[in-house]
Amino acid sequence: MRIDRIFARLDREPEPPKIEIPRMSGTRKVLFGSTLAFYLAIVWAVLLSSWLVLLDWKVMLFRAYEQWPELHAFLDYLVVLGQRGPTAVMVAAWLGWRSWRQHTLRPLLTLATSLLLLNVTVGAVKIGLGRLGPHYATQIGSAELYAGGDIFPSGHTANAVVTWGILAYLATTPRARRWLSVLSAVVALSVGATTVYLGTHWLSDVLLGWAAGLLILLALPWFEPLIGRAEAFVFAVRERWRSRGAFVPAVPGFSGGVPGAAVPAGAAVTVPAVLPGATEPAAAREPVSAGGSRYAGTRPASQGVPAHLQASAHLQARPHAARSERPSVAPAGSRRPPQPHKGGTHAPHATR
């Protein structure tokens, strides 16, 4: 199938039902506040080197990757579901397809907004606290803060929560939203636990990563007006570019135009009754013989017409005659030779 036919088929897709944009309801505000309190509690516990830091060391010294080495190969692939590059490409491809089918940029703009918030919030805490990872720890029982690291909170975990959770956030039906919420939660929990198994993150890193990603998903309704204005701006720019390029080549010599000049699309084109250089109107060229060719004995249309106008001669106006008034286009006589044995009109009837 040709590509243009595929595009034409997509353009004829029916408009989807009205998509309900999530709002910042009371329940969502309560969840946001609770998650924010949990986030701050984790940060405070690590800053004070409390029992949570001691738990981090106990889990790290357990070395799960040595206890169950047979899982190592599989979990090395599973943790890719939390890497920002591969997951962003996969999810953006799916949301791009949805944007095309639904004739809206909201899915892609929502994904871009969530990833921007993720980079800013998580990146700022990572750089500000500078915590070292388990493989680079120097003192047992220490929180390893302000040492030039970038491990707290876990970026893999937060990215898994946001990237896969955005699919549930953008779901158009309650059933799809429920199933996608369960799927994204399983993926995020698996990625966070895998980083602890591999020894690349402390347990508190993963807990804070889960909270950081959930805060972004819960806060997205506050950014919906901004997303709507950005979509309207992009569409307005597209329409302006389309209006600037909406020109078609002009017919040289018509409408007083200069050969090669452009005429706006949809503008009326005036066809003169007499072409420039011609000596008689096009309507005067009538057949001279009903038994011959329709234009037999007529002066050729190209005679006396400049070379650059001869290609437009088919555009000239001609009178429209009724069917009964139209002359015959067949020659005077029949082209078939007489056949006496069939009793045609050209042979006399045999005497009986």
Rank of each mutant, 00 (worst) to 15 (best):
M60R: 14
G257T: 15
A193I: 06
A282C: 06
A321W: 14
R318S: 08
A176G: 13
A317D: 11
L167I: 11
A41D: 03
A273N: 12
L109C: 02
E239V: 01
E70N: 13
N159I: 06
V30H: 06
L117W: 05
R63S: 12
A321G: 05
W68E: 10
G253H: 04
P17N: 01
V269P: 08
T270G: 08
Q339N: 09
H156G: 04
S190V: 10
H314Q: 00
G26H: 08
S154Y: 04
A322S: 14
G209I: 10
A317S: 13
P337I: 09
A230L: 11
S334K: 12
G128Q: 06
R12C: 10
F223C: 10
V182F: 06
R12F: 05
L129A: 01
L81N: 10
W51P: 06
Q102R: 13
K18E: 15
A265K: 11
Y136I: 07
F235I: 05
S154H: 08
E70F: 15
E144N: 01
A73R: 13
V53W: 04
V89C: 12
F233A: 04
S328M: 06
V46P: 06
L203M: 07
G228M: 07
P17M: 01
A92L: 12
L180W: 14
S302L: 13
L36A: 15
L52M: 09
A268F: 00
L218K: 06
T110N: 03
D11V: 11
V89N: 08
G304V: 02
A332Y: 13
G260Y: 08
Q310H: 05
G33Q: 01
E144I: 00
P134S: 09
A124V: 04
G82H: 02
H314G: 00
L218F: 09
W100H: 07
V187R: 10
E70D: 15
S289M: 13
P259A: 07
R229H: 02
S328I: 01
Q102P: 00
Q139S: 14
R5V: 09
L52I: 07
A37S: 09
W68T: 13
M90Q: 10
A246D: 15
S99R: 04
G141C: 05
T173G: 03
S25W: 00
H314S: 00
Q139W: 14
T163C: 14
S184F: 01
V234Y: 05
S50M: 03
